[in-house]
Nucleic acid binder design. Sequence first.
DNA 1: CTCAAAATACCGCATTTGGAGTATTGCCTT
DNA 2: AAGGCAATACTCCAAATGCGGTATTTTGAG
Lengths: 220, 220
Amino acid sequence: MYLEKQSTYTVQMPIKIAIVEDNEEIREGLCVLVDGSPGFTCTAAYPDAEQALQYLPDDPPDVVLMDIRLPQMSGIECVQHLRERLPELQIMMLTMFEDDELVFNSLKAGATGYLLKKTPPAELLDAIRNLHNGGSPMSSQIARKVVQAFQQISQSHKDTEGLTEREAEILAHLARGYHDKEIAGELFVSVETVRTHIRNIYKKLHVHTRTEAARKFYRR
Amino acid sequence: MYLEKQSTYTVQMPIKIAIVEDNEEIREGLCVLVDGSPGFTCTAAYPDAEQALQYLPDDPPDVVLMDIRLPQMSGIECVQHLRERLPELQIMMLTMFEDDELVFNSLKAGATGYLLKKTPPAELLDAIRNLHNGGSPMSSQIARKVVQAFQQISQSHKDTEGLTEREAEILAHLARGYHDKEIAGELFVSVETVRTHIRNIYKKLHVHTRTEAARKFYRR
DNA sequence: CTCAAAATACCGCATTTGGAGTATTGCCTT
DNA sequence: AAGGCAATACTCCAAATGCGGTATTTTGAG
């Protein structure tokens, strides 16, 4: 461990925050809240995605609070573009809705936090600190959605059930694009054996080509 | 809305909890904590995965607190098996470590919560309530890991960039396991055209077989 | 020990695939 | 008008694949 710049004697570098929100009341409210809290400073506030994209890169903040429903370009698109230009940027979606699609699309676009607007001020500040610290603050309800999507994607290898160990092994190689010959080499058996296994795999999975088999292997 | 059984006049059905943890001290501690808290009841506590699998289905709890590091069968395997038999079961991993692999494998296996053992009792109880209520309690640090994995999986369709529209269309068909002939039929062009496109796709994606191309299409 | 399943291996044959080259047409952009 | 790209289409050839058999050896459960 070595001493970090700000820990020498300065209290702490405040977390620089930018806000993208079309509703003036909310935007001002957030700005006042943030600026009035020790350890935070609001460096900019934009009423739409276009202005954010144009001016925000000139003075990149640490954290962006982003509304989803914006005029013209949506907050999600805005996240996508911001992330391309400023990969370090941490973005917290701040929205009225807990809609599945919106959550997923926001995360896919590159947001790393997702809170509802009704979140109490103290919690919001906690969450921002948290986000800046490498966490992904979100309600456990939202976390469940993410976990479920994650499970759905990761799992469903159940289609490969019924295969023997060896068959599964061969399917795994096949799915990576190897030729029969290469698989045979890897597993130290003859090509004919591999071919026999593959034909048995096809029967069990009810497919007729290796690409279909691979598809089942990677399933969705 | 209709009246639920327990809401008629009973205070609330306590949340039934089972514990799987090899360390006797911790196991007993959790048991006492849970049983001593209003709204919770500990219905069973097992020192290993085998006993949990054998006896737990006889009297299924609402929530299982599962240690990962167990003698013999690991907690993660145990989750997998429990989930197959009792799909309704909510399982919270309770462990010393915040290791990426362990988190992912736990979630893949079917756990929906993940907490560290150092979590204070009050928070633990909150989290259990939360889990039982459809949430996925986890620290925001762990949530970040999940989000990142999610993003990695969801994204990365960038590999198919550079392809023309037609090529992308053909790749999509190819990846579903269609033969050249079938693709040609679908798109009303000759097989030869399809073959030409496919060869161009191979060049652009730097692959040599359709399975590899499909792999890139489904990317991870 | 015995039976069955799994893994190994081979033959043969028709089809598909991968790779190379060439050519025509239409559509942009300059 | 000219050049470039995309889409279309064809030929030839070698290799890989899919599908039908059959057969031996190993392994594990009863």
